[in-house]
Structure formats: structure tokens, C-alpha cells
Amino acid sequence: MSELSLNLDHLSKLARIQLPEDEKRYLSQQLQSIVGYCSKVASADVDHLEPMVHSFEHEGNVWAEDEIAEGDTVDFLSQNAPEIKENQIVIPKVL
């Protein structure tokens, strides 16, 4: 891969991170060089291999019974939510 196009505007929209202009410039350069380094993987001969997502294969299935678990009553939202009304989280209107 010779020229990798990195559309930082597109990425920052997908990742929901707003970048000021000056940050964009150096970030773009840095990312370009990291991506360039990462494209080393292209040279590996691995088409015959299965992708590795998990470190080991479990035997059998991992799942839980359909039963209500005892939990601590969590007064969490009132402690940590930025804005809350009638126990619901408040945000600016979603259009």
C-alpha cells in the first residue's frame, strides 16, 4: 500500500471527536505514519489461517439462566448524571 488516504474529517465524525484545525494537521501526520507502519501486516502470508478473536476456545456455551439476580439498589443516576429530571437523563432535544 503506497498512498493511504486518511480522511480525518470523516473519522472524527464517526468517532464523535471534534478536532480543531491545528490539532488536525499534526494528528493527521502522526496517524498517517502509524497507519503506514501498521500496513506491514499486508506482507504476512495468512490467507489460510482462521482469524483469532478470542485467546482460547471455550468448551460448551457460556450463558446464564433466565433468573433475576440480586443486585444492590443503585442510586447511581442521581449521583453521576450530568442532568436529571424525574429520574430520567436530560439532554438537549434530539431532532
Binding site: 468517532a15 501498521c38 495468512v46 490467507d47 489461517l49 482469524p51 483469532m52 478473536v53
Partner: peptide, 21 residues
């Protein structure tokens, strides 16, 4: 975000998972 994005997934993430193996 880049390595998972449409058009780049196979070359990066898809490939990397196999190299991990």
C-alpha cells in the same frame, strides 16, 4: 475507527486477526 471502517476492514482488522493467529 479507521481500521474498522468500511473499505479498510479487510486490509487492516481482518488481516490483523489472522496475523494474530
Amino acid at each position: 475507527t479507521y481500521v474498522l471502517s468500511s473499505g479498510y476492514y479487510d486490509a487492516f482488522y481482518g488481516k490483523a486477526q489472522k496475523v494474530r493467529r
